[in-house]
Design a protein around this nucleic acid. Structure first.
Lengths: 187, 187
DNA sequence: TAACCTAGAGAACATGCGTTCTCTGCGCAG
DNA sequence: CTGCGCAGAGAACGCATGTTCTCTAGGTTA
């Protein structure tokens, strides 16, 4: 009987879409009900609270991000190319039409100060990404200073693309990353 | 009789502090009243709505940002050093204890999708910064590709510092900027 | 077939919030 | 000194929202 899981997944899916598109507090539980076709009673039997739904959404977003950059990395072979593939992944994301920034940064700005679990989820997501970049940079033989620089480029591209509405930031970040990687390996 | 202006400034000041520290929707008008000592009636005679207060807050934040980076730039002489001074300014900001990310990005994430004026204010702020960087990069004799890269580093440093709670991102961004500027001028 | 039980729908509740309304008290003119 | 007008404080309003409660319908067992 994992129709409970199915219902949870459907709710998380709809919540993710609504929260991301409009902001978390702008989405009411009633809207989530009409969007999913799941009654409020059922929603509250699947999750403890709206906050619990949000945390599940962030969890899933973390998984999607992780598998997305891993898939992009699988398409190339060297560690340096895997690092650069991050910005190609970002470019694809930016151009998908519904892009509105990093969901973790948005959630952090809106609720990070009042809901500690949200701040924690954002921190964990960013730390995990930093580790991913650091691992690849080490494999490429670069000094430890490179990884934070590349991660900052990825973060900056995300917010720049969100506010400008253009995907150009991904290209600029990739160019910058190429130069930084070159410089780090050249020495 | 510019005690009206004074009262407005005081309200904007308190609203900025509260909105920035906790998020906009987390701050009630009643809290703004008790924090400023200005009655609700008076607040609503000074501003049309809570949204109007927020827009005034963003306006002031834009002015403070602009004058802040200008002051940092005044301390050095070459265009390249002025570009690098941006990251020193960021480092000072990150270490001031109450740093919680870029106010425009936070406002954009929370309300950008539902309040068009907020999205507009964020876009204008970022465009203005991009122009500032582009002007300095041109004065330095760098190709047009440099400015977006440096702006992305600044944006990324802001979000990284916000979520990690550390000011290290400013140092990493400055190191990266030095390399990118060098590479852009060398060729 | 009948009694019981479970699960679900959505009405209801309590609270909180942006905004408005009313009443008080002070200053000033006559 | 008295009556008038105005600014301001904060109580009140109406609405929206997260959460809970009740009532119904369908299925299962004896």
């Amino acid at each position: 009987m994992d129709e409970r899981r199915d219902a949870q997944e459907a709710a998380i899916d709809a919540a993710d879409r609504l929260f991301y598109a409009r902001g978390i507090q702008a989405v009411t539980m009633d809207e989530l009900r009409s969007e999913t076709g799941i009654s409020l009673k059922k929603l509250y039997s699947l999750f403890d609270s709206k906050e619990a739904i949000l945390l599940a959404v962030l969890d899933r977003r973390h998984d999607l991000w992780t598998s997305g950059i891993a898939r992009a990395a699988d398409a190339v072979s060297t560690p340096a190319d895997k690092l650069l593939s991050i910005y190609d992944f970002l470019h694809d994301w930016f151009t998908d039409g519904n892009y509105r920034g990093c969901g973790f940064i948005n959630a952090f700005g809106e609720l990070g100060a009042t809901v500690p679990a949200v701040a924690l989820a954002a921190r964990e997501q960013k730390e995990s990404f930093q580790r991913y970049v650091a691992d690849l940079a080490e494999q490429a033989g670069a000094p430890a200073s490179l990884a934070p620089q590349l991660a900052i480029l990825a973060e900056g591209a995300q917010t720049t693309a969100a506010i400008s509405g253009s995907a150009d930031a991904a290209r600029s970040a990739r160019e910058a990353a190429e130069i930084l990687i070159d410089a780090a390996l050249r020495r």
